[in-house]
């Protein structure tokens, strides 16, 4: 498919309480094959998806948090975290997984995927999209 569109996935749900976070990630991973201009935004309870140290053994549910680390391999390297959402929840970037991607044009140098953005910056980014996915 020759058209390239800007697709943003807006994640606003915490993991495990509902299936939305997991099934959204499945869409992102499948969607990566379409080679579009993809970004992810983590807003509201969505920021909890990226919290480090998730351990699901006691609830009998698969821990899917390691899968986020693979996003870079799928060429998904624009990940935006809304600062206001972190602040409201008493979190900082240090509480979240550190996601990176490898730049094959620079000898596979590890580059930052995570971008902390203000509400104004996120509002601008939303306005630049062709399609906004919400689940």
């Amino acid at each position: 498919m020759s058209i390239t569109k800007r697709l943003m996935y807006v994640n606003r749900r915490a993991p495990y309480g509902t299936i939305y976070a997991l099934e959204s990630l499945e869409v992102v991973l499948i969607g990566a094959a379409f080679e579009q201009d993809v970004s992810l935004a983590f807003v509201d309870d969505g920021v909890y998806q990226l919290v480090k140290g998730q351990n699901t053994t006691g609830i009998g549910v698969k821990n899917f948090s390691p899968a986020y680390a693979a996003l870079g391999d799928y060429d998904v390297k624009k990940i935006y975290i809304e600062k206001e959402s972190l602040d409201q929840r008493g979190l900082s970037m240090d509480d979240l997984q550190h996601l990176t991607w490898e730049d094959e044009n620079e000898d596979y140098a590890e580059k930052e995927s995570m971008h902390l953005v203000s509400r104004e910056e996120l509002a601008d980014l939303l306005e630049e999209q062709d399609v906004v996915f919400s689940f």
Binding site: M1, I3, K5, L7, E26, V27, I30, G31, A33, F34, Q36, V131, V132, F133, S134, F135
Partner: peptide, 16 residues
């Protein structure tokens, strides 16, 4: 799921 991505690309609007 590719069918979802495909329609998001082909359609003018995606309604959720």
């Amino acid at each position: 799921l590719g069918q979802l991505i495909e329609v998001a690309i082909q359609a003018d609007r995606l309604m959720v």
